[in-house]
Simulated scan of single mutants.
Amino acid sequence: MPEKKPIPPETTKELTYTEKVWYTVGIVAIVAVLILIARVAFGVLLMALAGCLISIYFHGLGDVIERKTKWKRLPCMIISIAGSFIILGFLLWFMGSKIQIQISQLSDTLPLSIGKLKLSLDETPLGRKVLEATSGGSSEKLFATASQFFSTSFGVLGNMYIILFLGIFFTASPSLYKDGLVLLVPPDHKELARRIINRTSLTIKGWLKGTMFSMILLIVLMPIGLSIMGVPLALVLGLLAGILVIVPNFGSLIAMIPGVLLAFTISTNTAIIVALIYIGVQTLVQNIIAPIIQKKMINMPPALTIVGQLIMGVLGGAMGIIMAVPALAIMMILVDEIYVKKINPK
């Protein structure tokens, strides 16, 4: 029997410790760059979505003007855009100085209201327990979170001019961008893409209609109720409640906090009544009137909305929270058209 020659071991080059360190650093750097690019791209997508909402608003208002007047499309769109800016400018000119004064007073009054609330809570055993639970690190963390939220919100306001220009461009030639999206889809699915775009536009129009009507009602009703109770700065509190209606679930709670704190400067009973006014008006507007206007075009489970807001908030900050509902609506339409209708055809 001939002897078997031993198989020579494979020659492999061992990496030195320095090379391993540099490989690890390189991998971590690549992953970090990819995450950063995804984060930035997500922010750009949110601004593009906000621009689409502005465009849908202008076209929706143009549709209403066209139906009522039977005019051609171009003058209706000019009236829609120019009229919106004129009304906004008039409101800012008419109420801007008063709102600015009240905002300044609110920033000066809130610390005093918080101090008075602490004194009121310190008079009862339950209140002392609440103060103990919120003292120290918990309160510092709460104030830090609030500061981060408002600084992020001001960052969102800083990007408004970009969103506004995107909205104007989308409004000027919507078919250009719509056809461009359809061109990216394979020929067999172009009809599906057009159906998804049209359905998304109709759904977002319904959401915008209900949200804007809710905003107007809150801006009108809330100052009336607060003025009846003698709460100061009712105009800016109503404006804050109307603006924050765009943030479901959390917006109403955030809007209620300064109103209740200012009511504490009058009396505890006034603060309780003011809290009930906030809850009653916001429940009436957001849970009864808005769904009727939207005609159930967006029927999202509340838990899904909250989870979506938390995820969007982590990814996109305040802008992500604001855009959570329309983004979820688009995702639900995509899942329904691409997946659900395929496995459950009617």
Rank of each mutant, 00 (worst) to 15 (best):
D108S: 05
M222C: 03
D122P: 00
G280C: 09
I338A: 09
T24N: 13
K296Q: 11
V236E: 00
T265Q: 08
L176N: 08
K342T: 13
G167S: 02
V340D: 14
L235V: 08
E3V: 13
V281T: 11
K72C: 08
S153Q: 14
P187Y: 11
L276Y: 03
I306Y: 01
P187Q: 14
V64I: 12
Y23A: 11
I293N: 00
V231K: 01
I204L: 15
G155N: 05
I86M: 12
M212H: 08
K5F: 14
S267E: 06
L142S: 10
L142C: 06
K341H: 05
S55E: 09
P345Y: 03
A82G: 09
L334V: 10
V130Q: 09
I168W: 08
G313Y: 05
Q102R: 01
I322E: 02
Y278T: 01
P258Y: 01
F250E: 07
L208T: 04
T270S: 09
F42T: 06
L119I: 11
G280Y: 07
A234Y: 08
L184M: 15
S227G: 11
T16Q: 06
L119E: 15
M47E: 14
P186R: 14
S135I: 00
I54N: 05
V130Y: 12
M332Q: 15
N299I: 07
M312C: 10
